[in-house]
Simulated scan of single mutants.
Amino acid sequence: MPKSRVRKKKVYSSPTGTSSSSADSYEPSPTWVPITAVALIVIGIGWLTLFYLSGMAYPVAAWGYWNLAVGFSCMVAALLVLSKWR
């Protein structure tokens, strides 16, 4: 039985027009990005916890269930801020 030919793998070459220095052009995020994100997460969780533990009387009783929207919005905002973190 004849042996099959061994195929050589092609050597990877980067696409033309892009340089490897473009990856070095990214700067690290400012320190306020993770601090703001953690603060928004803590505020959101604290808002929701206070809302449920107070029997829906605090933080703003007149808002009713809109307090849930405020708490979850803080956490979603934290995710949006974290998407900018490098």
Rank of each mutant, 00 (worst) to 15 (best):
Y52I: 09
K8M: 14
P59A: 03
M75I: 07
L82R: 02
S73T: 14
D24S: 12
P34Q: 07
M1P: 05
P28W: 10
V38M: 05
A61F: 09
I43P: 00
S13P: 05
A57G: 06
L48C: 10
S73A: 13
P15M: 02
A39K: 06
K10Q: 13
D24Q: 11
A77F: 03
V42I: 01
Y26H: 07
R5I: 15
S21Y: 13
L79I: 05
P15R: 00
S13M: 14
F51Q: 00
W85S: 12
A78W: 02
K9R: 12
N67M: 03
R86Q: 10
G44S: 01
S29K: 01
S4M: 13
W47H: 03
D24G: 12
Y58H: 08
S19D: 13
V11W: 06
P15C: 02
Y65E: 15
S54E: 04
A77G: 02
V81G: 01
P28T: 08
G55N: 01
A61Q: 08
Y65T: 14
F51S: 00
S29L: 06
V81M: 03
C74G: 02
S25L: 11
R7Q: 13
Y52L: 06
S13E: 12
T16H: 08
A78I: 00
I45R: 01
E27L: 14
L82H: 03
K9T: 14
K8S: 14
S21L: 15
L53D: 04
K3W: 11
L48N: 07
V76R: 05
G46N: 01
A57Q: 04
Y65K: 12
A37T: 03
Y26R: 04
P15S: 02
N67G: 03
D24H: 07
Y65C: 13
S21N: 12
I43Q: 00
W66F: 05
S19P: 06
S73R: 09
R7S: 15
